[in-house]
Amino acid sequence: MSATSLLASGTDVGAEIVFWVCATLCVIGALGMLLSRKPVHSALFVALTMINLAILYVALQAPFLGMVQIIVYTGAVMMLFVFVMMIVGVDASDSLIETIRGQRWAAIILVLAFAGLLIGAIVNGLSGVPEPSLEAANSQYGGNLQGIAKIIFTDYIVAFEVTSALLIIAALGAMLLAHRERHTPKPTQEQRSIARFARYAATGELPGNLPPAGTYARHNAIDTPALAPDGSVVPESVPGPLQERGNVRPVDVAAEVEVDEISEGHTVVTVDDDEAGEQR
């Protein structure tokens, strides 16, 4: 027996275990999707359901469908959902306010009706339907993959091509909707760099990064403003929130004296802490 048939033989205890584990996880995923408040959690539960569905497909002798289920639905479609939710906002959670009057009751009635329909169909189907098996279909063309390829590219070729055309149309449509004509050519990295230095020449605006707090200063703490190479204080180097709160540490007088001494041409002066304290 090959690996495929081992995975799938209907009477196997393994298949039974796989079914009960994956089916339970599927239902948990579905319920979790409905009950979680944050959209990202819902998306994760859907992904859980989809992965378990894929395992069930593999166990039911459709390994190709199982893998495609994961690649396409879990890997691409759900990923797009997660993407959108991440961009929309981290804390966005559903509001529970009813926007249409009577919506909740209508929904409950419809859900009960649909559940009744489903349960009826399943109960009806449980008796008299043969054990599901793809054995015959798979062996017809020498394997699951070969069988699917044969069917897609002969009997269902039109449906297959139309579907792919539809997807391309959708992608093109999305691109068209999101497209915006530029009135001016996009500035290149080089042009932006030149403009930055021109601004520096005109207004003195720093072309590079700000020095990190504490550069050349006596302490390297985040609340200590950096000193420029000429000894002047760079107040912007302390992060904005600290400036707002007034948590900027005053510049060390000793450092300023030292800078003055050096820039006047003297040799390096050592300033005692006591002396610095007096000057302060």
Binding site: A3, A47, P63, F64, I70, M79, V90, N144, L145
Partner: peptide, 30 residues
């Protein structure tokens, strides 16, 4: 360990699940 007729697709599928780890860590860090 094992092999089956769509093993290479399985590798691709598993790789696409691995991306979730990266995306979710980015989102969950707040």
């Amino acid at each position: 360990l094992t092999d089956f007729p769509v093993a290479v697709l399985y590798i691709l599928a598993i790789a696409s699940i691995g991306i979730y780890g990266v995306v979710l860590s980015g989102w969950a860090s707040g």
